[in-house]
Amino acid sequence: MTITEVSVSLTINGRAVSVPQGTSLLAACESIGIETPTLCWAENLTPVNVCRVCVVEVEGSRALVPSCARAAEENMVVHTESPRVRHSRKMVLEFLGSSTDLSQASDLAVWMRHYQADPNRYGQTDVPAERIVEEPKVQDDLYVRDYDKCVLCYKCVEACGDDAQHTYAIAVSGRGFNSRISTEFDTVLPDSACVYCGNCIGVCPTGAIQFKTEFDMRAVGDWRPESQDVTTTVCSFCGVGCNLELHTQDNKIVKVTSPADHSVTHGHLCIKGRFGWQYVQPPTVSPRD
């Protein structure tokens, strides 16, 4: 959406707010310190507003509206803590928790506590609650796709496609609860259009797509986010000037991301920037091993 100098005034939870025209309700809430859970929204992607965890109540609107995608309008009256809003957010979190593995979605755990979501109240022994059950797809040395962690937020599809990479190696296939992120005919990634930019990893909120390094370290219990540092620097592989965030643990690079607010990358990288660091510390010959 286009942000202009014209401002609009609205009311959020009884407080008067003025924001530039085109500002999303999500940003308007943030501007007065109201935190909103999000899942499918990212600042470097076009909102697809599918997760519905950021819904708010707008007076006069029959259904709740996704705050990430709806622009603030003059005289809007918005509620973010009404019973309907709390109920919907709680239910969305319960639905996801009851059907997918959210063990690596640390942000969601906080919100689940906040809304007292109880994913365990679904299903009974006679009719268990259906879950997404998928084996991790380990098809190369760079990515692992573990789709029982997938909440179908569409972010990876957007990053692979229209919003950044324009490679379209993955898309949503199937319908309804059977929808999955997939290559054509579920072909293995190395045989697909994938160019391993890792932009899907960069936007995945649940660890459904992750670095093989992270996957391997987690497998042996050696993934320790609390003892990791993040250093911002500049990629060396061409002259474009992409900023890299090097995630390091024990003086080793373990993961690379890019800041979503950087005007060159918007958080997106190519295969060289994302994975090309390994020569700095080749695992077999590094004296640090």
């Binding site: 519905r52 319908r175 309804g176």
Partner: peptide, 25 residues
């Protein structure tokens, strides 16, 4: 509805499944 939900949004994708499961119960 479980079969026809497009799967895009969580309330409908999972909600229609949970509704159907409850009806099965």
């Amino acid at each position: 509805f479980r079969n026809e939900s497009c799967g895009q949004c969580v309330p409908c994708r999972v909600g229609t499944v949970r509704q159907h499961e409850t009806m099965l119960q």
